[in-house]
Design a binder for these strands. Structure first.
Length: 645
DNA sequence: GGATTTTCACAGTT
DNA sequence: CAACTGTGAAAATC
């Protein structure tokens, strides 16, 4: 999307000389607008409508007038804001700078955690760019880059926490490590943060409206918002050529009592003046981020808006959702609820963007509780699984009259031929009190569990052994994840673009189990008959090995080896999903998918017949379509196409 | 909820 | 004046 066409961005070389907004250039020293005198004259909180408030207003107006009359004629062409009309994918703006230092080893995690280890890290760039007119292939390229960066962040975060658990077990309880902070620090140290040598105004390539994040540091890592805690990110005045700061993004998360958020319109409170309990105890000043927002309004620079809100099921009870671009239309100085002066900014969402992520979240909540109330038309069934899954599977079609999924038997798990179960019987662990790291099943997984304590996949493997019916451990064992079935409310829906599709009403955390790709396993002879009949089958061996990317730390640890064991025989079976199936076969195909296949064994030990388990490769927001790379060598592998088109 | 972290802007030196 | 250094926020997190 070309936001230049949506937004009147001042043409820096051809500013109207008669414009009152851009007066004739004046050479002025760096402006230091401060309301400090006010703080001395008005030391105590004022009642809301008290006369002294007038002084604040007039002082603010005076300062504003000062600005508009002393700013040089717009921003210099070589200055704070410059357009980058067609960014090449290989632009340094978006690619991490290669680091000449050798990568540390896996065992160096502890060393990396030591603060102040001496190395100088480059500061953020001051160069402002706007990226527009991305071609479809560029979008895919950046999407992939962002996904890989986020996967690395998440893998590192989980890895750090798992390592820390082990250490704490060995050394006794102490404080829990902040995995998010350490993951970000390691990546910064490796120069793996994105978008650090350019400041991007507007959307970040590869980040979609609606994308969900759990940690502030993750926003820093991809360059969506560069402040670890502060809500306003901006290019500082010291780095800007004309001495004026420019805001690039804000986070709206309810930390200021004077905020008013109605979705498309936000009244945002500037920062500052709070004590460390979040109480407003001083007047705010027109400086730093506050000034940057004011200047962004003046130059009509759009800002990214990220909303933070509580979300149950998130690792920290919170989620941050990217809601797209807003323009600042008004600013004023006001007396807040506390009685202290605060700056306010009115922001309006720019038109022609896809629906806001946070409102989709809200809609999904109402769908979960009252589906028919929120969407009276289109539901064919409120449980396609007929109570076979722990959560109902909605079936929605407001496109055409096709109800065919209703006529299939719902299959929760894959049906294997009986002889599959004859291999390696009774091959389980004896951990009656719960499995620990030295458990027999952990050994089969290379001496570690595949999942963390929250059931998130730590790293992909050729094959994962879960504890099963032959083990003595309780059902609550951490090594039983996929066998417990789906954990989200899914919906099969009809789409004009992709035929059938699947989406979730819950936010799915990256690395979470989604569902099994269930079908009826065919013997070679059966498969031949099916093929002759023209039925299309699912070939498990042809799914792309995206599990190799998950948890792969080779980008940060030089001695990292991708798990090769257990080596599995080539998969030589096919699955029929024509009569019995679950939701998985409705997943759309994509070469840039958000779901991957991981092979898992739990109810038998036959390496040749694993379950095909689907895991999320990224945080998947509610109502976003799930997609899988079917590795389409030829059309016959497209399980979805086999039944849906 | 207090303690612990991190990053960044800013200002002051060298 | 560029580079370094110290300080103080800051809508974070457990």
């Amino acid at each position: 999307m070309d936001f230049n066409s949506l937004l009147p961005f001042p043409d820096l070389n051809h500013l109207p000389s008669s414009s009152s907004t851009f007066p004739a250039p004046l050479i002025v020293p760096k402006i230091e607008p401060k309301l400090e005198p006010l703080d001395e004259t008005l030391p105590s909180p004022m009642p809301l409508a008290a006369p002294p408030g007038l002084d604040l207003f007039s002082e603010y107006n005076r300062l504003c007038g000062l600005f508009h009359s002393t700013i040089p004629g717009g921003i210099q062409p070589n200055g704070a804001v410059s357009a980058l009309p067609n960014s090449h994918p290989d632009s340094l703006a978006l690619v991490p700078v290669p680091d000449p230092n050798p990568s540390p080893n896996l065992s160096d995690v502890v060393v990396l955690s030591a603060p102040g280890s001496g190395r100088k890290l480059p500061n953020r760039s001051a160069e402002l760019v706007r990226i527009t007119d991305l071609k479809a292939e560029d979008e895919l390229y950046f999407r992939d880059k962002v996904r890989k960066t986020r996967m690395l962040f998440e893998s590192l975060r989980v890895f750090v926490i798992v390592e820390d658990e082990k250490r704490r077990d060995a050394m006794g309880a102490n404080r829990r490590t902040r995995g998010d902070l350490k993951a970000a620090a390691i990546m910064r140290e490796r120069a793996l943060w994105m978008n650090r040598d350019k400041r991007i105004v507007g959307s970040i390539p590869g980040v979609l409206v609606g994308d969900a994040f759990f940690f502030r540091m993750e926003l820093c890592v991809i360059g969506l918002h560069g402040q670890a805690q502060a809500g306003i990110d901006y290019v500082p005045s010291s780095q800007s050529s004309n001495g004026e700061p420019i805001a690039t993004s804000i986070i709206v998360s309810g930390g200021y009592e004077d905020d008013e958020d109605s979705g498309d319109v936000i009244v945002y409170t500037g920062h500052g003046g709070q004590d460390n309990h979040g109480r407003q105890v001083m007047h705010q000043k027109l400086e730093c981020g506050n000034l940057a927002l004011e200047r962004s309004m003046h130059y009509e620079v759009e800002v990214r808006v990220i909303r933070g809100f509580k979300y149950e099921g998130s690792p920290n009870g919170k989620v941050y959702v990217y809601d797209g671009l807003y323009k600042i239309v008004d600013t004023w100085f006001d007396v807040g609820k506390s009685g202290f002066g605060v700056f306010k900014f009115k922001l309006i969402r720019i038109e022609n963007q896809v629906e806001m992520g946070s409102s989709i979240f809200k809609f999904a909540v109402s769908l979960r509780t009252q589906p028919l109330g929120a969407r009276p038309r289109g539901y064919i069934s409120l449980d396609l699984s007929k109570k076979k899954e722990k959560f109902p599977v909605f079936f929605f079609n407001d496109v055409d009259m096709d109800h065919s999924p209703m006529y299939c038997d719902y299959l929760v798990t894959t049906v294997f031929p009986p002889y599959v179960y004859n291999v390696g019987r009774g091959n389980g662990c004896n951990c009656a009190g719960g499995c620990l790291d030295d458990c027999f099943c952990a050994m089969k997984n290379g001496g570690e569990f595949a999942y963390d304590l929250q059931g998130i996949l730590v790293r992909g493997k050729p094959l994962i052994f879960e504890c099963g019916p032959h083990c003595s451990c309780p059902p609550t064992c951490r090594n039983r994840v996929t066998q417990k079935g789906v954990r989200n409310r899914f919906e099969v829906f009809r789409s004009k673009e992709t035929g059938w599709g699947v989406r979730s009403l819950d936010l799915i955390q990256a690395g979470s189990f989604i569902c099994e790709f269930a079908g009826v396993v065919l013997t070679r002879e059966q498969a031949q008959i099916f093929t002759m009949n023209g039925d299309r089958l699912v070939y498990p061996s042809r799914f792309t090995g995206n599990w190799k990317q998950w948890g792969n730390l080779s980008a940060v640890f030089s001695d990292y080896v991708c798990p090769e064991s257990p080596s599995t025989p080539p998969l030589d079976f096919t699955m029929d999903v024509s009569r019995m199936r679950n939701i998985a076969c409705y997943l759309s195909h994509s070469t840039s998918p958000n779901v991957m296949v991981q092979f898992v064994l739990y109810d038998h030990n036959n390496l040749s017949f694993p379950h095909l388990m689907l895991f999320a490769m990224e945080n998947i927001p509610p109502l976003r379509e799930l997609s899988l790379d079917y590795g389409v060598a030829d059309e016959s592998n497209m399980g979805k196409l086999a039944i849906c088109n």
